[in-house]
Each structure stands twice: as structure tokens, then as C-alpha cells.
Nucleic acid binder design. Structure first.
Lengths: 227, 227
DNA sequence: TCCAATATTAAAAAATTGTAAACAACCCCA
DNA sequence: TGGGGTTGTTTACAATTTTTTAATATTGGA
């Protein structure tokens, strides 16, 4: 898993201890923080306490079924957007459809392969991050590609398009030296022809706006970004 | 499916005509616009032309496999966020894991139930539009997509269709910058060709009606909505 | 030290957007 | 059927910003 600020928290609810154990083990190995519940009511309780990013619900559980838990959680604003995966031995289409329509994001039938479950969890998180929009953060600098905003110490810095693209490229791999050629290709495109000094001028503008020492010149090679 | 500005477009690529037909039929019945491709290369081609919201790829196809198509598409910025579902007769874990890790959002094994596929498609769309209902509220602005009504401070504002659709698009992800191209595709459609100033004129009208500072221009890129 | 590579600067060139006005297409209604 | 209004689009131009060029100064390493 890509290393972020906080590990994602996953709640898994199932009444079979074996499943709980093997799934927790695999998800933890993947870097997630795992919380377990043994029945429907406990699942709701633990969700409220721990506010997990993803919930895996066995459908057949004592107390409340996974579907019921899902329905209840979805009425609460805090869990309106939480990812929910159903887990079940019931392998028939109509149940699966019901699960997905109840508000589930995925429906996996037992016997489960822990690796597959993990992959599906990863895929769902990948999707969420894409929707949320990823902000690149380096030191006190934030670069939001989707909103086209750069902030330094929470102060917004206005960059023109080429400036933004250039900065986004350099910051995409901090400390990496980008060759002038590489920069030309990725920011200007392969077909555009501009003079050599053009890059310098843009670098200069970024330095003016962000402070001079964030971009280092590597003479004869290119530029790199460093905080 | 709730009737919004434009129906969602789905591309399905498979070399078996039967599958193409049955899946298209069911997805169309659900209100989606469906485009078909018969092999990997055609899938890429059609994707570039039609810019679908979701792509269903058979894994085993002549020309390029679904995995290869996915990999290629994911390198293009336009398809970085597009939802991709794999469809395959290969029912083994390692292939499924590979599919999900290649950048797929879901992996469904044949024989498929059209209803299940539809449910999974719906579930994925539900996930990517985290909109709570047909009424969107941002600040003191309310946008009712079903009734085509916009109110600001409880005063109704009359917008023409295109104006409304444009505003609905921009407000669907507040602060996100929508590229001019993206706006053209989603509001005017892929086949319509209109001049460059058309968007500006509509933006201007919305600004006149809502107040000038709700839509920000990002020069060289596009527009974004902000309260 | 010398020289090629880079920095700086100002000004020219290019690109992008805002605006007003005009026009065609459409709809509604008497 | 024929106004009167609305809507969507285009055109032309002004205003503005961005990007590039070109000319000159400065730098850092062989």
C-alpha cells in the first residue's frame, strides 16, 4: 500500500473466528489497521467508535444480518460514504444483487481467497483516492492537480499554466533531477519547439513565487525540486 | 437511473457477439448509452473517440488483451480515472488479482448474469458520484437536477437548459477545474461541434444570473465553481 | 582564468478570455 | 399564421494574461 499519513482502518464483522483471523492477518500485513466484530450489533457499535474507512460485513450473522447493518449505517451521515463489502457463503445472483443495491460496494462469496479480498480492498481504496482527488504534499507545499491550486503555508499561490505544469512535474519526484529534454517533452510536448531559455524563464518565475531555494539547478543536466 | 444532463456512456469490448448483445441490451435498458468494440485495439480507438464513463473489457481478446488495453488507457490522462471492469472466463485467483492490480475496479467471471453485471455497474457509478440525491446544495445555492430549478437564498433563478447543465456540471465537483474539452464533452456531447466562445458566453450568462464570483476562470485550463 | 551554461530582464509575440451585438432556430400563444 | 420572446450560437473586437524571444549579465566548474 502506498504510504500515506494515517493507515486506513478496516472493520471486519463475521461470526466465524477463523475468517476473522485469516482476514485480519492478511489486511494487517498489507498495512491496514483492523478492527473486528463478532455480530451485527457489535459491528454497528464498533463502527461508531472507530469510524473505519471500510467495513466488511458477513451477511449471515447472529443478531443483525450484514444487510441490516448496512442499511442502518447508511442512514447515519458518518457512514453515508463509507465503503462496504459483503462477504457471504450465499452464492446466488439475487442475493448478490440485493447486497449491491442495499448500498454495498462489493460482494464476495466464500470460500474467499485472502489475497483476492485484499486486492479488492486495495482496488476500492484506489478508487476512493481517485475520486477524492489526490493532493501532493511536500513540506508545507500542497499541489492540487484537480483544483489547479498551489498553497504554501495555506497561502494560495497563483501560477500560470506552464508554471503549474512545470512545478507539478518537478514535485512529482522530489530530489530527482529532470533533464532539460525531459522537461521539454513532458511539459511542452514532443512536437512543440521552443528555445532553450524558455525553461529558465519559467523556472525563474516559480522561484520568485515560491522562494528561490526550492528548485536547484544542476548545471549541464537539469533541475530538481527540494524543500 | 436518475435522468441527468447526459446519460452515462459505457464501452464494452468482447469478441463474442452474444455477450456484446446481451450486455448492451441490459445496460441500455438501465438507461446507459452503450458503445461496443470487438477487440482490444478497437476498444482503445473507441475509448478515445467517445470518452466513456465506464469500460468493460474482456480479458481474452484478439489483438490486445483486456489487461493490455487497461494498461495503455491508464497511461493517458483522460482515462486515468475511468472505471474499468474486467470480464473473463478465467476463474482463478491469481488472474483476478492481476486484473485488480493492473488498475481494474472490478473483475467479473463468466458465465455472467446480466443483472449482476448491471448491479455492479450501478454500484460503481454510485460510488463515483457521491452525490446524495438529485438536489445539490452548495452554500446558499440549491440545484435540483430533476426539476431544473436553481435557487439562491430561496429565490428562484431561471436558467436556460445549457446554462443549467453547465452549472450542474461545474457544481458536481466544487472547486474542481473542468477543462474546456471536458465541458464540451459532457454538456454538448462528443459529436457536437461548437465554436470556442460558446462556453464563455454561457459562463458569462451564469455569472450574470448568480453573481460574478461563483465561477473562477483558470486561464489556459478551464473553469471551476467555488462559493 | 576562461567558457559554456544558466540567470535575469525587458519587450515582443502569441494565446486566451470577456463582451457586445447579431443572427438563426425554436416555442408559445393569440 | 404570424408576432414576440427565448435560446443557443457565432462573430468580431478589446482587454488581458501568458509565453516566448532576444539581448545581456552572471555563474560555476574544467
Amino acid at each position: 500500500m502506498a504510504q500515506e499519513t494515517k493507515p486506513r482502518t478496516i472493520l471486519i464483522a463475521d461470526d466465524e473466528p477463523d475468517i476473522l483471523e485469516i482476514v485480519s492477518f492478511n489486511l494487517q500485513a498489507e498495512g491496514y489497521e483492523v478492527i473486528v466484530a463478532r455480530n451485527g450489533n457489535e459491528a454497528i457499535e464498533m463502527s461508531k467508535i472507530h469510524n473505519p474507512d471500510l467495513i466488511i460485513l458477513d451477511v449471515m450473522m447472529p443478531g443483525k444480518t450484514g444487510f441490516e447493518v448496512c442499511k442502518i449505517l447508511r442512514t447515519l451521515p458518518a457512514f453515508e460514504h463509507t465503503v462496504i463489502i459483503f462477504l457471504t457463503a450465499l452464492n446466488d445472483d439475487s442475493t448478490e444483487i440485493k447486497g449491491l443495491e442495499t448500498g454495498g460496494d462489493d460482494y464476495i462469496t466464500k470460500p474467499i481467497s485472502p489475497k483476492v479480498l485484499t486486492s479488492r480492498v486495495n482496488a476500492l481504496f484506489r478508487r476512493i483516492t481517485k475520486e477524492t482527488g489526490s493532493v501532493l504534499q511536500i513540506g508545507d507545499l500542497k499541489i492540487d492537480r484537480e483544483k489547479y491550486i498551489v498553497t504554501s503555508n495555506n497561502e494560495e499561490i497563483t501560477l500560470a499554466r506552464k508554471e503549474f505544469e512545470l512545478l507539478a512535474l518537478l514535485t512529482s519526484k522530489p530530489s530527482k533531477v529532470f533533464l532539460r529534454n525531459e522537461i521539454l517533452h513532458k511539459v511542452w510536448g514532443t512536437d512543440v519547439i521552443v528555445g532553450d531559455r524558455t525553461i529558465d524563464v519559467h523556472i525563474r518565475k516559480i522561484r520568485q513565487k515560491l522562494g528561490a531555494d526550492c528548485i536547484t539547478t544542476v548545471k549541464g543536466v537539469g533541475y530538481k525540486f527540494q524543500m
